[in-house]
Amino acid sequence: MTTHSRRTVRWGAALGAAAMLWPGGVAHADAPTEDTTTPSTPPASGNANDQEVSAAVSRIRVTQKSGPTGGKQGSLSSTDVSWEPPPCWYEPVMTPEQLKKFSETGVALGHVSPHTSWGGQKLWTDHYRDGKDAYNYEDDSLITRKGYDDYNLGKDGYFWRGVARDPDSFDCERVMFWQDAGKIPDIPNAPTPETLADYAYDKVKVPDTKVELKPQAKSTVNLPTWAWLDKGTFQDVKVRAELPNTDLWAETTAKPVALHLEPGTDNAETFPASGDCQINDDGSIGTPYTKGRAETTPPCGVRYLHATNGTPYRLSASITWQISWEGSGGTGGDLPDGTFETTQDMNVQEIQSINR
């Protein structure tokens, strides 16, 4: 057998076992066959009948509970470069009645797992109505999944399917399966409140706020530039994520805790020396400049030691946001801090005295 990537091998086996009814595709098989070609990804949607399973996208509902909603906003970058939200998880997709309608109407084209799509009514009715086994790759093994009797009509529950946030993740490839209502599947990558907290982290939007400076945009060699943010400039941002048809929920809160300054050149000093300006008790950062303090050291600011020569320095100001979460079942904890950075041009002039 020709050597292929993990993705290619899985696609080949999946397409051999669960045939795609595309022009030039393979016929339905009662047992897995081997395919050494590299199949193309089938379309993500068919007709209006297949909206429930037309693409492997999440049904998690996200709501911002607090924090600013207008103006320029951006996403947080985790301070822990090794941290990532879960690459995939499972979710309830359809009731028996919905699956019956989908399977027996129209093209019946849709995803049965994040990377496998079935096209044609027979594939769906064979497995979910007529009890025939289905075959697919899970964890690098070919798995046989037993079929269902008449879509489990009359039972209370849902058919679940994997969602791959990371398209390169193949860890949630189990063919869409049944789970009784009120229960979470006891399988790897089943969703948890922390799954939702991580998902919400990815949806937190924080304000793109410009730091107040004195002097503004034009500094003077060897004289400090004061930097500050007034109280009320930043508020906690809380995002709630809920997974429908389960009791799972989580609220992720981002709280601003510090401002970090990077002058944009090695020929500068920051105040404090670390460049980290802590948030004050009243929610402000630094101290606003007042007349007569031009030569005093600010609690938060920068001093440039060399003038610019036509090209301004890029002063970077990043806010650190402390992330915590709480969720269903009394769960909760902390997630890695997040940062959001803005930059602004700074021109520095060679004047040794200035009246501010």
Rank of each mutant, 00 (worst) to 15 (best):
H4I: 06
P32L: 12
N49Q: 08
S54N: 13
R59W: 08
I60F: 08
Q64N: 10
E84T: 13
P87H: 10
C88F: 10
W89N: 07
M94Y: 03
D126E: 13
H127W: 06
Y128P: 09
G131W: 03
R145V: 13
D149C: 01
L153H: 10
G157P: 08
G157T: 06
F159A: 09
R165S: 13
F170P: 02
R174M: 10
Q179W: 00
D180T: 07
D180Q: 09
I184N: 07
D186S: 15
E194T: 12
E194S: 11
D198V: 00
K205A: 06
K205R: 15
K205G: 01
D208E: 11
T209I: 09
K214R: 12
K218M: 09
L223W: 11
T225P: 04
W226N: 07
A227R: 04
W228T: 06
T233G: 00
E251Q: 12
A254I: 05
H260P: 00
G264S: 02
F271K: 09
P272M: 04
G283S: 01
P288D: 07
G292Y: 11
E295F: 10
P299S: 11
P299H: 02
C300A: 04
L305F: 01
T311R: 08
S316N: 07
S318H: 05
S328T: 09
D337V: 03
G338W: 02
D345Y: 03
Q349G: 07
I354L: 10
N355D: 13
